[in-house]
């Protein structure tokens, strides 16, 4: 119990300090501010004249969630690379804290910036494209967003694990950005994907998070059920990430890959 409490305290404190570290970078902040607005503008213009009409709120959600995923992936991919270039990675690995607990607040901090992306998209849509600011279940929406942020952070840990062993793993994160967004139902509903790839979608925790967020905003579908599945899958990710990080860090120790040089 004591261990759980101190782990929770560490996670909260580390998340806050990582938020400070990330958000005070000018280039990063500029990217984080501009990207959702760009996504939103493109999405609204694309769907405005599309033959198959989607509700403006649904379009805003898709663009906002895409921005959220992009922020997470960008932040997670850079998480290990940043620690390596700052010379902090070796110190983190040498500490007694399990690496999963060290990396998680860094990637969750990136995912948290995605909340801004979601809000900015809605604000931009309301101001310039007439998107109504209505949320069917505000409390469930807040819970769904929080769970989705956590799950995206966990997926981010899995992505960032590759960077421990391969400093130049950016190609991997670039390659998975849009496929994961598609499979998660961020850009188009999962029901419109080919049947053969749908099982992959069901294994992605963010897909269930996205479904919960959509249901909470648009109404007409259960929210609790996808949230539960999202949480269960996230716990599996957590266990997988803990094992994967341990294995990869041991390999990195063997191959001397933790330092910049």
């Amino acid at each position: 119990m004591n261990g759980l409490r101190s782990a929770a305290r560490f996670l909260a404190g580390a998340w806050w300090l990582q938020m400070k570290q990330i958000t005070t970078g000018r280039l990063y902040a500029l990217t984080a501010v501009l990207q959702p607005v760009l996504f939103a503008t493109i999405a609204f213009l694309m769907f405005r004249d599309a033959p198959q009409q989607q509700s403006p709120t649904s379009v805003a959600l898709g663009a906002g969630l895409l921005g959220m995923w992009a922020a997470t992936l960008f932040g997670s991919s850079a998480a290990i690379a940043r620690q390596r270039s700052m010379g902090t990675l070796e110190g983190l690995v040498a500490s007694p804290m399990p690496l999963i607990l060290v990396i998680l607040p860094i990637t969750v901090a990136s995912a948290s910036l995605g909340i801004y992306s979601l809000l900015a998209t809605f604000g931009w849509g309301a101001l310039f494209f007439g998107v109504p600011l209505t949320i069917s279940h505000p409390v469930l929406f807040a819970v769904s967003v929080a769970v989705t942020v956590l799950t995206l952070g966990l997926l981010g840990v899995l992505v960032s694990a590759a960077f421990i062993l391969y400093p130049a793993a950016n190609a991997l994160s670039n390659a998975i950005e849009f496929p994961i967004a598609m499979l998660s139902g961020v850009i188009v509903p999962v029901s419109s994907l080919p049947a053969a790839v749908r099982p992959l979608s069901y294994l992605l925790a963010p897909m269930w998070g996205v479904r919960a967020v959509r249901s909470a905003v648009l109404g007409g579908a259960p929210v609790a059920e996808p949230l539960l599945v999202c949480t269960a899958l996230s716990l599996c990710y957590l266990a997988l990430a803990a094992v994967l990080l341990q294995v990869l860090v041991n390999r990195a120790r063997d191959r001397a890959r933790l330092a910049l040089t």
Binding site: L17, K20, Q21, T24, G25, M86, G87, T88, E90, G91, A94
Partner: peptide, 14 residues
């Protein structure tokens, strides 16, 4: 306790 020399190993913006 490890004390490495040089400019790196700290969070500059904190």
């Amino acid at each position: 306790g490890v004390i490495l020399g040089g400019d790196r190993g700290l969070y500059d913006r904190l």
